[in-house]
Design a binder for these strands. Structure first.
Lengths: 409, 409
DNA sequence: TGATTATGTTGCCCTACCCAACAAATGCTG
DNA sequence: CAGCATTTGTTGGGTAGGGCAACATAATCA
């Protein structure tokens, strides 16, 4: 089964609700709260959902019956009154995350509560062909699957792609970094693994991970910008939900044109944010190679020759213009800069802030927060796993899992 | 009472649903269908909502009891079987629309079914101060109110502002065109009229009107661009809902920076879409003054001297870049060009299309529709009225109306 | 140790939707 | 034109699921 990322949670406003909708909605609400918070006492569920104590009791016991959550007595008591029962997501429900990059494929195992419990990174030849990548990914999944305890249930596989993904069928339309064009990667990996495969753009998944587990917690209007060696990607959260657009390509924030400059980006567009703010250019100015973002940050603060400083400042100025545009367009509560962009942010925060203030409307800057993203290496693992888990959350009663190991009779 | 535009219809996904939610949701679903389609047979309601015949019967009779809809026997029969009863929105529920412009204030009366039944345009001095504008608007409302038949119920007043409006309290943060800064217009007009007042940006309301009654019908991902004498405004519909952002300022699409050009727009930002695509500039090149868009379109096609053509083409090229950016950002199904921008579109559609294709990612262009908006003079009247009507739709059972004329005892 | 407080549990109620059977109103066909 | 098929409105009963109130339980506090 090849499955697309879950559609918008909001039922069409013109569709009717019935009792079953209500029940499913309430079960989902509880699971959503739990998967984001790790675990909560029942009393908190009562407060957050606004439902009656007895209703929560009923709903939770249904979820316990489904094996999706576990109840335990509270350890730490927090006040007078009978202590509330602690409800936690089941830790034997997991998803695999896959991230194909330019010269390596990473596969991880993520629990329903958002913890990465295993991770393997397998180096490949540069720009592996899609079938090769699918093979490698499947091998890694098989290997990790063998290590899981019997009884572990698998929700599915989530794949983060550095490129554009059509959400309807999981086809990678274009991933310039990987040199993939029109690759039905979800179907390929599904046929190999036999697991449901979900797939989406890496930056979109990053924004979701930051919303649920990182610097975006509690915000409903988020603009997320990620700079990597493959360019600049973006993810937008609006009203708490990812902005997908008609076919899933929304959020290509790196490809917006902000200048008349003829410099071109990976996709052949000129004057774009991605063409003006480039990790490679800065590395070249620094005469560095193969460093990670931490090393780059250090190199930059240690030895900012006038020439290097000029390059970095020009990039900061371009970034500021783009951020100004996004503020005018989205009026977000918070803007998160990840990867290479957080290096630029740290290098001269004041310059970035002041330049940005010149290029957006003042009203939209009210209470705007601009800060680096929080999640590091496991960002994409967590983000990609949210796709299969989202299906669990949305249809807890009818969801079927695949066992990590076949049951014996 | 001063009221903000309705918040997102999607209940927080972590809030519980109960019976009352379900009922309200279903009543809303029916009203929403009716207010968009004018009227529908009961059988269509059954199909569209997915609810049972008997449930629809029950819901409709509750709405009839509330005086929000009317049932009548179908006139035209459309096939075998017992003819279905026609359900229509009540025509004695109305809202006032107010549109303050640079030298005139327009007030209209709009029925729940979306028809503009009265409209007055009162010329004022240029850039009237806000209290003056509120006075004039209130006078016009009083005049129109006197003409309404007794028993007419008023849902409220919707105001369309050419500027940024804070949705939390209806304060106009900045309307450069009117020279208003930090004006609590909703409160002012509420105190004068005694009616609930809703207020929002004009282009956002335009996008909503086009979605419900114009070229955007049936689409869920819409980018709307409006060019007027006061610059360029934008409205974005995502997943069927307007993009508001943190405080309501989202969608300032005219102020995005796409060029290094030093030309400035009304808000003092340089190189923005609005600074490069300007009705005034083209009028100056044509040596025209005080013409409307139709006359401008005609003048342009009739006599395109090389000089004029060059100006228009430069503007088209800039517009194409901006559209490319919006396609990359939003991946919309449809882009609607309204006002002056539809003149540019008509002038050289091919140029606009081909230039635009160079400046966005190919995947995002799949099945993209670019076309002029449909609604003309009544656009803002209809759009603004949707704000008070939205409240009716959202809480049909508890909504209270104000009678056009006080009842005698 | 008893009072207070907060939470879990249980049985009952009520509402809103579904369903099935029937009635009504139309078109089609012989 | 009568009878049949088809679709829709109507009615009465069924049911699921959330609310409620009373009671039980387990903690803090005086």
């Amino acid at each position: 089964m090849v499955t697309r990322p879950p559609v918008s949670r909001t039922l069409l406003a013109t569709t009717g609700n019935n009792r079953e909708h209500t029940r499913r909605h309430n079960l989902s609400a509880i699971l959503r709260l739990l998967s984001q918070s790790g675990s909560m006492p029942r009393s908190a569920l009562t407060q957050r959902t606004g439902l009656n104590r007895s209703t929560i009791s009923d709903l939770v016991s249904e979820l316990v019956g489904l094996g999706l959550v576990v109840e335990a007595e509270s350890v730490a008591t927090q006040g007078v009154g009978r202590p509330s029962l602690m409800v936690s997501p089941a830790d034997d429900v997991v998803a695999f995350s896959v991230h194909p990059d330019i010269d390596a494929i990473t596969v991880g195992v993520v629990t329903f509560s958002g913890k990465v419990i295993h991770k393997i990174r397998q180096v490949t030849q540069a720009q592996p062909a899609a079938p090769t990548a699918a093979d490698v990914a499947n091998d890694l999944i098989t290997k990790l699957r063998a290590q899981l305890p019997a009884g572990t249930r698998i929700a599915g596989v989530g794949v983060a792609i550095p490129g554009q993904v059509r959400s309807a069928d999981g086809v990678v339309r274009l991933a310039p970094h990987l040199n993939w064009v029109e690759v039905p990667f979800a179907r390929m990996l599904n046929q190999l693994s036999g697991l449901p495969v979900f797939i989406d753009n890496d930056a979109s998944l990053g924004s979701i991970a930051e919303r649920d587990f990182g610097a975006g917690r509690g915000f409903k209007e988020i603009v997320y910008l990620f700079g990597g060696s493959g360019g600049i990607g973006g993810g937008v959260i609006h009203d708490g939900q990812p902005l997908r657009g008609a076919a899933g390509y929304a959020g290509e924030l790196g490809h917006i044109r902000i200048s008349d400059s003829p410099a071109e980006d990976f996709s052949g567009l000129s004057g774009t944010l991605e063409s003006l703010v480039s990790r490679e250019t800065l590395l070249a100015a620094l005469k560095l190679n193969g460093v990670d973002d931490d090393e780059l940050r250090e190199a930059l603060t240690k030895d900012p020759s006038p020439k290097v400083r000029k390059v970095a400042e020009a990039q900061i100025d371009s970034l500021a213009i783009a951020i100004g545009n996004f503020v005018n367009i989205f009026n977000p509560e918070i803007i998160l800069l990840a990867g290479y962009l957080s290096v630029l942010y740290a290098f001269d925060t004041d310059r970035l802030l002041s330049r940005f203030r010149w290029s957006s409307l003042t009203a939209s800057q009210d209470r705007l927060i601009l800060r680096p993203a929080e999640l590091g290496a496991n960002l994409l693992m967590v983000g990609a796993a949210q796709m299969p888990f989202d299906r669990v959350v949305q249809e807890p009663a009818t969801m079927t899992f695949i066992l990590a190991k076949p049951t014996r009779k």
